[in-house]
């Protein structure tokens, strides 16, 4: 078994992140884009990757396999990336409504980003895809996970840039509590 130089010389708290244990689902209807994303992830030593050519196939994969993180395109048929995220967040059949999701898209207009965030994505990545940006987004999900918010019309990661953790004033959004089982299934 190969051991990296970091593993030998650095104490655990000073080593870079080792993302190799992550199990990923890469969803894109363009085969070459799936291959590009997979090649980048492999170079970053993430090799537990399942591909899916559209949202419908992704749902099948999520039901059949343990997945830690979804990386998805937006525009796909028959189930697009936004519909996939909504299914993950709100379907009673979703294996994990808290599943981290990174959306990759060429859409850059603010209304599109707002739409994606409204569906419940964790991170939005604009094409062209760069290894650094993808790596950084995954690291963000590990190092700075956002709390989730459940309201009558939204369930997903807190959409504030500052998630409010440092604010304790009277306008602070509602109480934080451990996730009840029912919130994980079919939440609003």
């Amino acid at each position: 078994m190969m051991v990296s130089a970091h593993a030998i010389s650095d104490p655990p708290d000073r080593r870079p992140l080792d993302l190799s244990p992550l199990r990923l689902l890469v969803v894109d209807d363009n085969r070459h884009m799936r291959e590009l994303v997979t090649a980048i992830l492999n170079a970053l030593e993430m090799t537990r990757i399942r591909p899916a050519p559209d949202g419908a196939e992704a749902i099948h994969e999520l039901r059949a396999h343990e997945i830690d993180l979804v990386i998805t395109d937006w525009l796909m048929d028959p189930v697009c990336g936004i519909e996939l995220v909504r299914w993950i967040r709100t379907s009673a059949e979703s294996p994990d409504p808290f599943m981290p999701v990174i959306m990759i898209s060429s859409y850059t207009t603010p209304d599109r980003v707002v739409e994606a965030r409204g569906a419940g994505i964790n991170e939005f990545l604009v094409k062209p895809l760069s290894p650094r940006s993808l790596y950084q987004r995954i690291a963000n999900l590990v190092e700075r996970p956002r709390p989730f918010v459940r309201s009558k019309d939204y369930f997903g990661p807190c959409r504030r840039d500052d998630d409010g953790a440092g604010y304790g004033g009277p306008e602070r959004r509602g109480p934080t509590e451990p996730a009840p089982r029912q919130a994980r299934r079919g939440a609003a």
């Binding site: 080593r15 996970p145 459940r150």
Partner: peptide, 20 residues
């Protein structure tokens, strides 16, 4: 409106370490 912390974290799966 309720704030929740995901029951599973990627950190738990990845282990210690920091940065790229």
């Amino acid at each position: 409106v309720v704030r929740l912390f995901p029951p599973r974290s990627l950190r738990a799966r990845v282990g210690p370490g920091k940065g790229l």
